[in-house]
């Protein structure tokens, strides 16, 4: 195969990997994915990042270092500014290529595509084409790659919204979700890169499942449901992620489809600090559905998280029997 393109298994990987992989494969490139987050990656990231950076960014830098050491020719670090009109990603995702370059020494060349749907779609396409040009393919391949990528991304979205899969399920090749409808229904909300990173989240979702819960996440909701749920809050969030989280939280509450909500935030995350606060206050004030907020940082002990999840699920079971 051709050029080896490294993709860090962190941050937006959880949202867009199917599209990225399809895109690069269509361009005859080989995709090198960094391994699942582990202790070494975390430690490397913590060493490289500025102290105050949020945990997910630290982990991202750790993955970059890992790809560098594995000899990728090129590392894909997109600048995803916005994927919808009037919405943004977080400032750190906007500045990710620069953070990467300035924090990790000895990186190979970075492929930084700017995706900004606040501007015209044509502009985004031309950015993608420019990125594709690096791979030296026959004319027309770029267009084909873009189409294939967008198809793959759609399939991914549908598998989650219709099939009830989580990103982690899909990315790990799980085909269908086995849901048992008599189980406790628990919503889990947070950044995809927090809740689906097994190491970082200490597998919160898996643990909830083991405790007998059926987990529902934002990805399983339709676009319209999220929009309807957002109306519970006075201002629409200008972050894509914030919009999804508020929308899902509002929708869960309005429809009463969950019995408990687990909010997962990461230490040092700006958006989380306010969005999770809005949700917590909304739920607490109405006192119908209990909320558990878990803040992940590099020192979070697994035992503590397990204890809190167990206590939470116990409480939900007890509520189910008595209410």
């Amino acid at each position: 195969m051709g050029i080896r393109v490294g993709i860090p298994r962190a941050l937006l990987y959880y949202r867009y990997y199917p599209a990225w992989k399809t895109f690069f494969n269509a361009l005859q490139a080989e995709v090198v994915l960094s391994p699942e987050t582990n202790k070494e990656i975390l430690d490397a990231g913590v060493r490289l990042a500025v102290e105050e950076a949020c945990l997910p960014v630290k982990i991202y830098l750790g993955h970059l270092a890992c790809l560098r050491d594995r000899g990728a020719d090129l590392i894909f670090v997109p600048r995803v500014v916005a994927v919808e009109e009037k919405k943004y990603f977080c400032p750190k995702i906007l500045g990710l290529p620069e953070i990467a370059r300035c924090s990790v020494p000895g990186l190979p060349e970075l492929l930084t595509v700017e995706v900004n749907m606040r501007k015209k779609a044509r502009k985004v396409i031309s950015c993608l084409k420019k990125a594709a040009a690096v791979f030296d393919c026959r004319p027309g391949t770029a267009e084909k790659a873009i189409r294939a990528a967008s198809k793959a991304q759609k399939r991914y979205g549908l598998a989650m919204s219709r099939g009830g899969l989580t990103p982690a399920d899909y990315l790990n090749g799980v085909q269908s979700a086995a849901n048992n409808h008599r189980r406790l229904k628990v919503g889990v909300l947070g950044h995809a890169y927090n809740i689906y990173d097994l190491f970082l989240s200490m597998n919160i979702i898996g643990k909830l499942k083991d405790l007998g819960a059926e987990v529902i996440t934002t990805e399983m909701l339709s676009f319209e449901a999220v929009r309807a749920g957002q109306e519970c809050f006075s201002k629409e969030s200008f972050w894509t992620f914030g919009h999804e989280l508020l929308g899902a939280a509002g929708y869960f509450h309005k429809k009463g489809i969950i019995e408990g909500l687990v909010l997962v935030a990461s230490f040092g995350c700006g958006p989380d600090s306010l969005i999770c606060e809005l949700v917590e206050r909304y739920y607490r004030r109405r006192q119908e559905i209990p909320v558990l907020l878990i803040t992940l940082d590099e020192h979070t002990g697994e035992a503590g998280v397990v204890t809190r999840l167990e206590a939470f699920v116990d409480m939900l079971q007890w509520r189910r029997q008595t209410l």
Binding site: A49, V50, E52, A53, C54, C90, P91, K92, L94, G95, E98, I99, R101, C102, S103, G268, C269, G270, P271, S273
Partner: peptide
């Protein structure tokens, strides 16, 4: 301010 997102981007770049 502690955890200020835009300034952490800047802080990461300032050493260079």
């Amino acid at each position: 301010p502690f955890t200020c997102t835009p300034e952490i981007v800047a802080q990461s770049i300032l050493p260079v």
